[in-house]
Design a protein around this nucleic acid. Structure first.
Lengths: 225, 225
DNA sequence: CTAGAAAATAAGAGTAACCCTCAAAATCTC
DNA sequence: GAGATTTTGAGGGTTACTCTTATTTTCTAG
């Protein structure tokens, strides 16, 4: 297990493969934040989302409730944070140039997933299950839609050399995110004990295939200059 | 003013143009619900959304807080309720058969708007302004996306004779709603004192025109039967 | 018109997510 | 090691929302 989270704070920063030599303060913050999320996800899956109070989470993570709210402004955020984050979008920007937009998105998601440690992958899986099963969280995820739309639009602008703020790109991103988000529905195969990443990727593939048949980004208008 | 809301409960039901002869109980309920919304919107526009408590609204509408929550399960709902309701979707189903999907949607919205009394139109306008300006409400509207998606998908199935539950139709609806919802952005012309319906329709037209260029519903697959 | 069923309301106590402020503790800098 | 800065803890306050119970209002029969 090469991941060094949640254990002894080595006096000399270990700075793994990609650690840009954080100071002690930064490392502690990251550790606290991760620990809060770990405990929260554990409690949620054990006793349910609504049945777990922030106070309990804080106690389990050995911090005060106010500290909880400093790291996660809302209770939702402890599950929803970092969904479709800037890192993944950078992967999309850097994806092979010949990939169509949604193929590039898929590429980025795959890259992002495979870069996770086994431990983080398990957490990710848990997060996904919670989002799919707890209506409150599904709503929260959808409510946050505008953020991923902005990120996706930005990535598309970069990849395709479009004008910043191109309304076609923005609307394309909005349609895509809207269509893909609602795929994560509680649908049929709810009873899975551990919904693995395979299943998630299969759903994503199917959705992207379907979406590419109906959604096409128009060519850039020939600007006057 | 042919609208008979909020005044003397006529002993004999007046049953206006479309009143299906409600009993006294039903009429009173409708009146109470409308009055709560009226007062809520008034207070929100006067002192702000967050600054207005449910207790205040209940007091202004002369009901108890518990009654408020019986009619509107959340504070959001007093603004967001009935957005893209079943009535509008029926108008879409009944729209001229030669209209393309999004044109039919536009048709339904226009029909729905023009059927409103001046008073209701003013309320509608206020609602729109609130949704556009209060971030909390914008989030709430987006979070509710799955409901209008379902309604739109159903209407499309009816109009186009598609199989119930056709995944293409569903995804098309999701993409359309996602794209159109995020159009209602606080954008440029925020400073409008009274954002009239004209402006709203213009935005909708522009958005639909743009969307039709990039989103196309695939033909139904030839089923085996 | 009145008795009793059914529904709507009010009142009140309780929970929990957040917000704010202030003092104590930890970390950084020199 | 001293002082500036940041993070944390503690505690009090607000308010959306829930649940329970008693009272009032409307409906329905006879």
């Amino acid at each position: 297990m090469p991941q060094n989270r949640s254990m002894s704070p080595s006096p000399t920063p270990p700075s793994g493969p990609e650690g840009p030599a954080l100071g002690l303060r930064e490392r502690k913050k990251a550790k606290t934040k991760a620990e809060i999320q770990r405990q929260a996800l554990r409690l949620f899956s054990e006793q349910g989302y609504a049945e777990t109070s922030v106070e309990q989470i804080a106690a389990a993570a050995e911090v005060s409730p106010s500290t909880f709210f400093r790291y996660y402004p809302t209770k939702d955020d402890v599950v929803l944070a970092d969904f479709m984050d800037a890192r993944t979008m950078q992967l999309m920007i850097d994806a092979p140039a010949d990939l169509r937009p949604l193929a590039a998105l898929r590429h980025a998601v795959v890259q992002s997933m495979t870069s996770l440690s086994a431990e983080d992958l398990a957490l990710e899986s848990l997060r996904n299950q919670l989002i799919r099963t707890v209506p409150e969280l599904r709503r929260g995820l959808i409510a946050e839609m505008t953020r991923p739309i902005g990120l996706l639009a930005h990535a598309l602008e970069q990849r395709l050399g479009r004008e910043p703020g191109d309304p076609d790109v923005r609307m394309y991103a909005a349609a895509a995110v809207g269509a893909l988000l609602t795929v994560a529905e509680p649908g049929e195969e709810v009873a899975h004990a551990i919904p693995d990443v395979e299943a998630m990727m299969q759903r994503l593939d199917a959705a992207i295939t379907r979406l590419e048949r109906m959604l096409v980004l128009p060519e850039a208008e020939r600007s006057t200059q």
